[in-house]
Computed example of a mutant assay.
Amino acid sequence: MEHLINQRVKEIEISGIRKFFNLVADTKDMVSLTIGQPDFPTPVHVKAAGKQAIEDNFTTYTHNAGDLRVRKAASAFVKEKYELSYQPEDEVIVTIGASEAIDITFRTILEEGCEVILPGPVYPGYEPIVKLCGAVPVYADITNNQFRFTADLIREHISDKTRCIVLPYPSNPTGVSLTKEELTEIAELVRGKDIFILADEIYSELVYGKKHFSIGTILKEQTIIINGLSKSHSMTGWRIGLLFAPASICRHILKVHQYNATCATSISQMAALEALTAGKDDAHPMRIQYEKRRDYVYSRLQDMGLDVVKPDGAFYFFIKIPAVSLNSFDFALDLVEKAGVATVPGSAFSSYGEGYIRISFAYSLETLKTGLDRIEHYLKAI
């Protein structure tokens, strides 16, 4: 019966990140620097709120867009943190993680043959959904621009078929964010055009040395913002995403969300309510530790003579591999086999990631030291 499977589904692949992680998961004595998942536990008071929701039998459906208390808290959170203004009643949707928010957004705004401009390299979760919608991903090469996805690069790829521009910042896999000036230039480039901005700001609370700036403050009418609690509050498994958009757009996205999932998990929503209110600054101590790890890893990589851009957000380094005759997948596999270190091949982040590997510093300093010691030893051996 496989011949009856949707051809577009046949043509997409499992995420290269997970594919490589699964490939090496059973390797003994391996240091894994692969998965972008906080190594901190969910804050105690947030877990307690989830437990209390169960005890209170808050285990039924909520409003499709999410419990209004959660939407109000989310609206207040982004207002205080990023000066964003969204009405909780009709401009906020609580989703099952940021991944569902991306999916329902694309399924709402994309049609057959339209184009979506993406930076390359980029998180692999966008392209498959774009293709499943019958749309065409168009990549802008950011590898020669310090991984910065700027208006000048975007301009080169805009056509009469362009429907959406994806702005993931800070970026997975590069850790590079965008400045207020850069985002203003992008906003002015597309203002008044029939083009959506999908701003994936899931790492907005993990920005170092400056404050996160959201394009939604200057181009709200064309912008759909994706955020959530996975990275900011170490709540990956709770699956809470947040989507913000003008009411005229949000009401259509909500229809897709309704038929896709009905609503986000009620128990997780109560944990989210606690996180967004009493825990609104929970990311701060984590951010301090991530910044220390970033500085340590950057120093080590520089000492190894590796070509790397210092990230100003998230928890990743995207490292150009040395001049060897191996592609990124084989290089990463060689690192596993000879050094006992797992990274992610750059090719997992589109063809523009070829020639790189990604490491996550969402691990303890002890783990990072061991992994980097092994990488240094490996590089000296080759």
Rank of each mutant, 00 (worst) to 15 (best):
K180L: 06
L167Q: 00
Y139T: 09
V130R: 00
Q146E: 15
A135W: 03
C114H: 12
F149P: 02
V166F: 06
F149W: 06
F149S: 04
G120P: 05
P124Y: 10
T162Y: 10
F149V: 08
D160R: 12
V116R: 06
A135D: 11
G125M: 06
T150E: 03
T150S: 15
E111T: 14
S159D: 05
T108Q: 01
P168L: 13
E111P: 01
L110A: 01
G120H: 09
Y169R: 14
R163N: 12
D141E: 05
R163H: 09
G120F: 02
D152Y: 03
K180G: 12
I117M: 02
G120S: 11
V166I: 15
N144R: 14
P121A: 10
L132R: 12
E156N: 11
T150N: 10
P128V: 11
G134L: 09
E181L: 02
P137Q: 13
F106E: 02
T143S: 14
Y139E: 09
R163S: 13
T108P: 03
T143K: 10
G134V: 09
H157F: 14
T179F: 08
T162F: 11
L167I: 15
V176F: 05
P137V: 08
G120I: 06
S177D: 14
P168I: 12
C164H: 03
T143N: 11
P173W: 11
S177T: 14
D141S: 05
F147C: 08
F147P: 07
K180F: 07
R148M: 05
E112H: 14
V136D: 04
D152Q: 15
E127T: 15
